[in-house]
């Protein structure tokens, strides 16, 4: 028996965490809300008498009628500043604080889950949600776009024309960029989640922070700060729709998000590993 006990089953907690995440009605409600955005957009464009002209409506909307796949890209433009981070704020802000307010945190810890392991698993599941969220927008966009407008050639920002295969690759890249954009936010959310026992408070704080960061990003007086805001490159995926692709902002964003993950991960570790769990 003691020999048996020394064996560890590390992945089980992650599997269990993902099950809990994706068995919650809340998770599905958020994914459904995200999916509704490309659907609504595509249906409205389809039903309108005149197709949108260049420069009308959100970016790339005029492209939608040529290539349905651009529904996905336009939907990502619409969801990235607010809806998507909001859902990520809910999941990441709830990560530790939610367990604390349910009271299950103490039981996980005496199981024992291990505080570092629990923190890592919680972040991993938040990452999985980011992927699921942007993937939902992307896939729904593709599906509804292809169904209503078909697929065809697409025009890049540089004026060059690309085929369907290339358009799929480009929109996948945009999805990847948006997912990476959410990773830093998820780390911030995880840290805030270790500060409180009130899940709703943590979610609200993360959501507010997202908006504050974007507002700060609009103030020219703070230009020195802008490259350090986690929201700085959120809409930079336009660079993936130029010919040839501009990788600079994609790479800078990946580095920036990695820095956020490292810093707020370290803060979350400092806080959570020394925290008195009294809930």
């Amino acid at each position: 028996m003691p020999g048996e006990k020394s064996r560890t089953h590390g992945g089980a907690l992650l599997v269990s965490e993902l099950r809990v995440l994706f068995r919650r009605r809340r998770t599905w409600a958020m994914l459904a809300a995200l999916a509704s955005i490309p659907v609504l957009m595509a249906v409205v464009v389809r039903l309108s008498a005149e197709p949108p002209g260049p420069g009308e409506g959100p970016p790339f909307l005029d492209q939608v009628t040529n290539n349905g796949m651009f529904v996905a890209v336009t939907a990502l433009v619409l969801t990235t500043p607010l809806f998507l981070p909001l859902t990520v704020a809910v999941v990441s802000g709830d990560a530790i604080a939610g367990e604390a307010s349910l009271g299950t945190l103490r039981y996980l810890l005496v199981a024992p889950a291990g505080r570092v392991r629990l923190l890592v698993v919680k972040y991993a599941s938040a990452v999985a949600f980011c992927l699921a969220a942007s993937g939902t927008v992307l896939l729904t966009g593709w599906a509804i776009g292809a169904a209503l407008f078909g697929t065809g050639e697409a025009t890049l920002l540089s004026g060059d024309t690309i085929g369907v295969g290339d358009a799929v690759v480009r929109s996948l890249l945009v999805g990847a960029h948006v997912t990476i954009c959410m990773l830093g936010l998820a780390a911030v959310g995880l840290f805030i989640s270790t500060l409180t026992d009130a899940g709703v408070g943590a979610m609200a704080a993360v959501a507010v922070l997202t908006i504050v960061a974007q507002v700060l990003g609009q103030l020219d007086q703070l230009a020195w700060l802008h490259p350090w805001l986690f929201t700085h490159h959120w809409l930079a995926f336009a660079d993936l729709l130029r010919e040839p692709i501009v990788w600079t902002s994609f790479m800078q964003n990946a580095l920036l998000q990695a820095a956020y993950v490292a810093f707020f991960g370290a803060l979350a570790y400092g806080r959570f590993s020394t925290k008195d769990v009294l809930s």
Binding site: P54, G55, P59, F60, D62, V77, T155, L157, S158, G159, L235, A238, D239, R242, V246
Partner: peptide
């Protein structure tokens, strides 16, 4: 030459004696 806007781009392309100017916001060339 490509000048970037957040969701747009202005291009000037010179190829021998051909010169193209493209503006994505207007989709005009």
């Amino acid at each position: 030459l490509q000048v970037f806007d957040t969701f747009g781009e202005r291009d000037v392309i010179v190829n021998g004696s051909d010169v193209w100017v493209y503006e994505s916001a207007e989709n005009a060339a």
